[in-house]
Design a protein around this nucleic acid. Sequence first.
DNA 1: ACGGATAAACGCT
DNA 2: TAGCGTTTATCCG
Length: 334
Amino acid sequence: MSKRGALDSFFKPTAPKKPKYESSTEKTHHASYPFSVPYLPSPFVEELGMCPAVADGTSIVDDPKYPDLDVVIHRPYIPSSISGGIFEFLRQELFFYRVVYQITRGGINATVNTPRYTTVFGVDETSRFSNGRLLDSKTNRPIEASRYKCVPRPLPACLETLKQIVEATTGETFNFCLVNYYADGKDSISYHSDDERFLGDNPAIASLSLGAKRDFYMKHKPIAPSANAPAQPEPKVLQLSLGPGDMVLMRGTTQKNWLHSIPKRAGAANAVGVGRINITFRKALVKAGTENYYQYNVGKGEVFKWGEKEGKMMPWSEGVAGTEAGAEHLDAAA
DNA sequence: ACGGATAAACGCT
DNA sequence: TAGCGTTTATCCG
């Protein structure tokens, strides 16, 4: 029991707030986290047990209209009864970053402001977490201190839960979880491939969408004109609209041959406050993957946390009150 | 892999 | 449906 006296109790404004979702009191703590992260509420976990199998998704593979593409699309994957609640939960409970970094383009330095909020958890295959400590995957001994310049973070239990569900569905295994928050239609990611060497040759990447619906475009990489077959027409763009609970599994030769993007969008449907969370699971094979992901998804910048009152991501710092302000409608089963 | 410039496409009246 | 403001796609530094 608390040591609170009568006076304190008297001045305490009101009875305890009603929780927005039945949150467990259990949280994942780790020295690398700015604050601890609650477990996924158990009603969500139970419902997630009934997610579809890969076979239930729509496959696009060996399709002459989309050469070299290999994707499976589930619309939705997470049932609509809980996708809204899981979105609210993650937006509220995770910490995010707005990474700024320097690149050299055309010989000159440029500053890039990542146009979305990001956060990342995981470590490549050369290491694994055991009770929050990093061990060498082969020897099971603690890793040497010099192994990483960054500080790898274990997945919090709530994301570990989602990872396990997605692994069971896809038959893949993952060791990284990247989370993006697109606050509105101005947040985006331009065309790119997840074709880094550290993911291996034909990486499988599972991508979960939560919250606002956004366009997701995929287009074939430019086909190099060769001597005997000049100027091929590019295959047409595959335009998907990803809504809450949808999942896209990209695998095989997809990353080698295709680009994907979440383009900027104007209009009321993408107004401020209409946020989307994207969670991708992937497997980094070597150290370079760990360094890369922490550099570009955590960086050195300030921490952001969802401000319920403000309705947007707010700078967070240790000991600053106000981040507990509660929403009411979180078990919004719709 | 960003964002400003620009041209093309869209969509409302 | 021409006209025009808005949105989108592409180029490029």
